[in-house]
Write a protein that binds this DNA or RNA. Structure first.
Lengths: 206, 206
DNA sequence: GTCTATACGAAGATAGAC
DNA sequence: GTCTATCTTCGTATAGAC
């Protein structure tokens, strides 16, 4: 779920469309508190009204800063991700390293995988919805980043060169997302070890 | 999403708990028609009321056969999967073959990936819910089946033996699930080719 | 600009009539 | 076994107080 190496910049897709009219500071505050709610109670009570009550405002107040519940949830996920990831943290790391690191952190936050999966499901429903735009962009960005790392690793002789970096990038993201789900349902599926077994598969064949 | 090699038998988890009091025949009829609704209109209108209207009954009538909307949806997915997969079809196939085949079929049914992802998300919410029980069992069953195939392939020298079959099984399922999602969001991510690039990674190293 | 109050329709679920 | 009626909660929209 997490592979946010390049989350630089403000929310482009989920913010208020181009204007600052809705109070950026207060908006951030709401997001911070919403994340706390998730951290404490998992993904339960994530109704608009539930979140509003937990924060201490009316549900209509939330809609003053976010156009819809879906947009709020996407912003919450995006915000949580940006708090965690710094571009610098992941510099000069291998594709697999970045992936494993992000996955382990993500899995440590209760409700995060559930939130992520719920939003991904919503993103499949229709084009142009907040979650659809967000995840389309996100997947593309992460695949590109990983493919770049893989290409460099191939050039350096650290990854076998008989596979397409773009394919492997998509495969890695898919594996990470899917394994987090399986681990949550069955903790005996060891997330870290299993993901790292990818390293064996990617090692040069020579 | 699909990897239903061993869907033999009646719905164990999602059925009416042990009794036949709710009319098995009518129940099957409802499921058949519900699947048609999905096939025609995707995952839209999947509210209890929407499905009921499409079928031509009241929503309360559906709840006579299924305890909740979630249980109905799980039963729909399970039923759709069982219609598609026959144990015989996949005999003597490689793990990757089975996976690719099932994924391609699954992706061909509108709304199926969305339904699957939605239910998986719901399954993460709490233990003991219909979707949680269903998917916990399902993942375990599929991992076991794939691991068995992989072990046989290793013995036959068709798959490298320096990796753990259980790990690879989990990895394969995760990759298949995740790729179907990515493909739906961005069709340029070629599902079949990408999944099959796994074959290169799994080939014996000798 | 920020927020509360309120209303509306749709949803899942239950109770009870037929 | 199936319906209608009803309850509660939800997302959303609007009006208007401060």
């Amino acid at each position: 779920m997490p592979n946010e190496e390049l989350s630089a910049g403000r929310s482009a897709v989920v913010g208020h469309a181009g204007s600052y009219s809705k109070g950026v500071a207060r908006r951030q505050e709401i997001l911070d508190r919403a994340i706390e709610v998730f951290r404490e109670r998992g993904a339960d009570g994530t109704s608009l009204r539930g979140i509003a009550t937990a924060i201490g405002v009316s549900h209509a107040a939330l809609l003053h800063y976010f156009d819809s519940r879906e947009q709020l949830l996407v912003a919450v996920y995006e915000h949580a991700e940006s708090l965690r990831d710094t571009a610098k943290t992941y510099q000069d790391r291998s594709a697999l390293d970045v992936l494993v690191k992000a996955a382990m952190i993500n899995v440590g936050v209760p409700g995060m995988v559930e939130l992520y999966t719920t939003l991904v499901a919503a993103s499949l429903a229709a084009e142009g919805t907040p979650s659809n735009v967000f995840f389309s962009d996100r997947f593309a960005r992460i695949r590109k980043d990983l493919a770049g790392r893989l290409t460099a690793e191939q050039a350096a002789g650290r990854v076998r060169d008989d596979v397409d970096p773009d394919d492997i990038a998509a495969l890695l993201v898919a594996a990470s997302d899917g394994l987090q789900i399986q681990w949550l349902l069955e903790p005996s599926v060891e997330l870290e070890r299993t993901l790292e077994s990818f390293a064996v598969l990617l090692a040069p064949t020579s």
